[in-house]
């Protein structure tokens, strides 16, 4: 991602061509990204090769940090992150597909209500929303208190375990799965579904042979988004999980804060960046976002 596309040389300004204009228009964005995205990331990558516990950037590069990572238990937190993210993606696919189907194909006015109801949550800091679960699930919290009062069942805190971390991630990243799925399902033409039905396919066959393959772009985008976001998740494990599970993101954070070992944190970040880059490029290379957006226009 550090490769900026080659900017073509501007043609003589006598006649401003669209090509020239397009290049000029993209310049502010490129400058912003160069300063605020590419340079910091290069900085991180470079810092990963510095000797441990230093704060200076101009020293002999070394692989010592990477050796530390693979010799110690850091790879465990990487595996935890990937595992949690995978479970989150699969859970969300199961939860969101029927809802997205309803929104794209069945509800009329209700669909935009659900859209707004869910989208609103995107603008509420995820800390606040996760904290709501804490209040709900803590000892004598909303759930426990209600059970004690109504059914006379005493339960301990439901917090600080792995399922609740997954619940938190599923909850926070639900919109990122739902909306791509809705878009993907909207791209399945109604007449194509009807034709399959008319040609003798049962509802299940229509789902398997028409809906699922044709909404695949949405499924892919949603899964990708959720995977990348939840692999970098930090608050869910901290707020809901206590210290039960250490994810790579919180490992990185603690290297930068408590341990004050910036080079090691940088090396971890570099690995992490490499991981997400591979996933994103692999997935984004496979379909055309312009087509998705362009299709949206014709609706």
């Amino acid at each position: 991602m550090s490769a900026t596309p080659s900017v073509p040389a501007p043609k003589p300004p006598r006649e401003f061509s669209p090509a020239f204009f397009g290049t000029v228009c993209s310049l502010p964005f490129f400058l912003l990204m160069l300063f605020g995205f590419v340079a910091p990331l290069l900085c991180v990558v470079w810092f990963g090769f510095m000797p441990a516990k230093t704060f200076a950037l101009l020293q002999m590069p070394t692989f010592a940090n990477y050796e530390t990572i693979f010799n110690q238990t850091y790879f465990k937190s990487i595996l935890w992150s990937i595992g949690l993210a995978t479970v989150t993606v699969l859970t969300l696919l199961v939860i969101c597909y029927p809802l997205a189907f309803g929104m794209a194909k069945i509800f009329r006015g209700g669909a935009s209500f659900i859209t707004y109801a869910i989208a609103t949550s995107l603008f509420v800091s995820e800390n606040i929303r996760l904290f709501g679960w804490v209040i709900g699930f803590m000892k004598n919290g909303v759930v426990g208190g209600t059970l004690a009062k109504v059914f006379d069942v005493q339960i301990d805190s439901l917090l600080y375990n792995i399922p609740v971390i997954i619940l938190g991630m599923v909850y926070v990243y639900l919109p990122f799965m739902l909306f791509p799925l809705v878009l993907g399902l909207k791209m399945v033409p109604d007449q194509v579904r009807e034709a399959a039905f008319d040609l003798g396919a049962s509802r299940w066959q229509v789902f398997k042979k028409i809906d699922l393959p044709l909404s695949m772009p949405g499924v892919l985008i949603g899964s990708l988004l959720v995977f990348v976001l939840s692999v970098g998740a930090i608050s869910e494990a901290k707020i809901l999980g206590g210290q039960k599970v250490v994810t790579i993101a919180s490992d990185i954070e603690s290297e930068f804060t408590y341990a004050q070992n910036w080079p090691l944190g940088s090396a971890l970040s570099t690995l992490f960046i490499a991981l997400t880059t591979v996933v994103v490029f692999f997935a984004l290379g496979r379909f055309d976002l312009e087509k998705l957006l362009g299709k949206k226009r014709s609706e």
């Binding site: 033409p189 007449q191 194509v192 009807e194 034709a195 399959a196 039905f197 008319d198 040609l199 003798g200 396919a201 049962s202 042979k209 028409i210 393959p213 044709l214």
Partner: peptide
């Protein structure tokens, strides 16, 4: 009788060919 159980079939205006 739903369309998948009727012995009739329709050619749609959009043709509704399966694009995949």
């Amino acid at each position: 009788l739903p369309p998948n159980l009727r012995p009739t079939c329709m050619v749609f205006q959009s043709l509704a060919l399966f694009p995949h």
